[in-house]
Amino acid sequence: MSRGDAAAARELRTALAHTDGIVATTPPLPSEDGAVSTVLAFPATSPQDEGTTDLVHTLRDRVLPPLAARTGAEYLVGGPTAAAQDFADSVADRMPLFVAVVVGLSALLLMVVFRSLLIPLKAALLNLLSIAAALGVITLVFQEGWFGAQPGPIEAFIPVMIFAIVFGLSMDYEVFLVSRIHEEWERTRDPSHAVREGLAATGKVITAAAAIMIVVFAAFVLSPDRMLQQFGLGLAVAVLLDAVVIRCLIVPAVMRLLGARAWWLPAPLARRLPKVGLERPDAGRGGPEPGSG
């Protein structure tokens, strides 16, 4: 509480004592100059319990505003639990914009490079699919308590970090595979042959690179730190699904079904987009090297 006197602090303690979910409070603890007083409230639930999060919102939205209007004092809810909830709310509010910017820019770059409208859409949807599956596994294991894990909340920054890292890795695999398919398409104009050759040339490299990363990320699960366990499990599952299921199964199947339509780009848009290529001048047989372009 700030800008309040002793009477306002006492009213705060009384209001907290009559709030559901609070089992005990301390007497007001004034600062040296008396301008600020602190009242400690002890919830009935643990810091990571959903009930404690609801209690923070209840205090801010329902309990303290009428009290502040009556006393004229300013009341603030602080502490580690409230700070963690504020961070989680801030991340949740900005997550849609973050996802939209990353996915939008990535799709735009793929459209410029491959001069296709469907390939960027396919890449964005499949990348989001692997990320969503990884976050679902984290929720089942660490929030719902599957496989003997202690149920509890997911660290607020975990979804953001997993999205950023996995989306970058997925896009790297996508460019590596589709660029080889694009080479064969430009050379033969046979969509079935292009998909077959692209997968044959890049499948082993993608699988080997993913296997290394899966082992590294899975090692984090052995850490006693819960945050590292969540981080490692999410990344390992996402890379496994992306490399094995999406890149080696779904992407070739979708490209085969689309056929020549995969490389369709509306003429007005094609005239406005710059021409950018990943292939080397001497490419045609071996395919692009990882990281080239």
Rank of each mutant, 00 (worst) to 15 (best):
10 R>K: 05
166 V>I: 11
210 A>F: 12
39 V>Y: 07
141 V>E: 11
164 A>P: 00
248 C>D: 07
224 P>R: 11
225 D>C: 02
41 A>G: 03
144 E>N: 11
86 D>A: 07
124 A>D: 04
127 N>K: 07
82 A>P: 05
240 L>I: 14
116 S>K: 03
92 A>L: 13
189 R>Q: 15
5 D>H: 02
181 I>R: 13
94 R>L: 03
74 E>V: 01
89 D>E: 12
185 W>Q: 11
38 T>G: 03
167 F>V: 00
164 A>K: 08
105 L>I: 06
191 P>A: 13
36 V>P: 00
215 V>L: 15
110 L>W: 02
210 A>R: 14
144 E>W: 15
170 S>T: 06
263 W>T: 00
180 R>D: 10
106 S>Y: 03
214 I>G: 04
115 R>H: 05
174 E>P: 00
136 G>P: 02
8 A>D: 01
241 L>R: 09
184 E>S: 10
37 S>D: 01
292 S>R: 15
285 R>V: 13
256 R>A: 05
240 L>A: 13
145 G>Y: 12
45 T>F: 11
94 R>I: 02
66 P>W: 14
189 R>I: 02
63 V>F: 06
112 V>H: 12
272 R>C: 02
135 L>S: 12
283 A>D: 15
120 P>I: 03
184 E>A: 14
157 F>M: 06
69 A>G: 03
50 E>K: 08
148 G>F: 06
214 I>T: 09
14 T>R: 04
228 L>G: 06
171 M>N: 13
265 L>F: 03
174 E>F: 00
91 V>Q: 07
195 V>D: 15
90 S>F: 12
122 K>N: 00
41 A>H: 11
269 L>N: 03
96 P>A: 14
93 D>K: 14
30 P>R: 15
189 R>C: 08
286 G>M: 08
25 T>F: 03
165 I>W: 09
176 F>S: 07
84 A>I: 08
155 E>H: 12
227 M>C: 02
205 V>F: 10
86 D>F: 05
101 V>T: 10
190 D>R: 10
283 A>M: 10
7 A>I: 06
2 S>W: 08
198 G>Y: 09
176 F>N: 11
46 S>G: 13
173 Y>W: 14
92 A>S: 13
29 L>P: 03
3 R>D: 03
81 T>F: 06
208 A>D: 13
73 A>F: 00
155 E>Q: 09
86 D>S: 13
212 I>T: 15
175 V>I: 15
59 L>H: 04
17 A>Q: 00
108 L>N: 09
14 T>H: 02
238 A>V: 01
258 L>N: 03
272 R>Y: 09
180 R>V: 10
275 K>F: 01
36 V>L: 12
199 L>W: 14
57 H>W: 10
255 M>T: 02
151 P>R: 14
183 E>T: 15
102 V>H: 02
152 G>I: 08
